[in-house]
Nucleic acid binder design. Structure first.
Lengths: 203, 203
DNA sequence: CCCCTCACTTGACAGTGTCAAGCCGGACGG
DNA sequence: CCGTCCGGCTTGACACTGTCAAGTGAGGGG
């Protein structure tokens, strides 16, 4: 494949991770790659196409991490718990990419079918994990959807708040980040579990 | 007070709500206000100062909505539930402002003490509501903090995912947005309640 | 040998945020 | 009443951005 194409992607990624998506400059990217300011246009339609590609790769990386959790041994609850942790870890490990992945107004991912497909892939892992954990004769599919939404919201919110430092300035002051993540996910896992099993009373 | 100052704020708000924060243009704002492109600089230090002011006002509006829920009658669980709904409603009602409120890389709110104070005010409402709902002889302050984080994460995540359309494209296809919000918050309320009361087994 | 294609460069245009002056009317001290 | 100051606004300029248009030049097939 083209060498410059990968160089442009790498430079763009580095740039948005260090200065934020808003300050991504195609000309700066070209400068770092040692080419003219128009060279990137022979590999991407424009600025949005570059970040769309980064988003697509981000979603497939996230999917892989979630699928790794899915393949882990143990009970369904444990796998769901592992996936939640993987989600948060991915967000903290790739802050800028994670942010733009869920921000359609910065880069319209609907224009990039690859990105949309990768997003769907990640979501379907969550659906499977929740189903495996919560499905039963007494839970309707609709209820399963609500539980899925609840899980995604909780984990996504935790990742987002940690990323933006909102939690660090408040609850984080009294607890290390890692401990806060673990205890929050544990507590949530127990609480959600009560929806389907009779009372495992938390400590 | 200065007339132009409010005009600039109003025009900026309208602009970011219709085109996104990234496309906020001071010159366009000045154009809409009918003044020269430098006039806003006599009321704000720069672009960031304008959105910082909008963020500060957003946080106080959110605080007021949460405090209204806090003043509602009924049990603590009901008030917490109302506050959660108010949080989501605020996000959906002021999309662009909500986004920038929790995105420090777009506008450094730490430079604006008023915005930080307003944010703390909103957070303290949540702390009080969670404490009122979950405090007891068997729950340590640390655990209370974890439960607070869990609540904030869940509600914030739900609001964020709805705002970005991620949920609409997935779970939302099978359920109206309002019903999804209500059922998700209800389910979460029941699940969290199980952390402190013995088994109210959900339907 | 010619020509064509493809990766890339050069040039230009409109738009941006922001620094540096200039203008101008109204308040204020004498 | 006059001069001076000053705050609100304007005009001008600079460096920077994304993107359209045209040119360049090397490598390969007819």
């Amino acid at each position: 494949m083209s060498d410059l194409r990968e160089q442009v992607l790498a430079a763009s990624l580095a740039l948005i991770e260090e200065r934020g998506v808003g300050s991504l400059s195609l000309r700066e990217v070209a400068r770092r790659a040692g080419v003219s300011h128009q060279a990137p246009y022979h590999h991407f339609a424009g600025k949005e196409a570059i970040v769309a590609e980064l988003v697509a790769r981000g979603f497939t990386r996230l999917s892989e991490m979630l699928e790794a959790a899915e393949r882990a041994r143990g009970e369904p609850a444990r796998r769901l718990r592992l996936a939640a942790r993987a989600y948060v870890d991915f967000a903290l490990g790739n802050p800028a990419v994670f942010r733009v992945m869920f921000r359609p107004e910065l880069a319209d991912l609907s224009a990039c079918p690859a990105a949309a497909a990768a997003g769907t892939r990640a979501y379907s892992v969550l659906v499977r994990l929740v189903e495996e954990r919560f499905a039963g004769p007494r839970v309707s599919p609709e209820r399963l959807g609500v539980i899925t939404t609840m899980h995604w919201s909780m984990v996504h919110g935790l990742a987002t708040l940690l990323l933006d430092g909102s939690l660090g300035k408040r609850a984080g002051s009294a607890m290390a980040a890692d401990a806060l993540i673990e205890r929050t996910l544990d507590t949530f896992s127990i609480a959600a579990g009560s929806l389907v099993t009779p009372t495992p009373r938390a400590s």
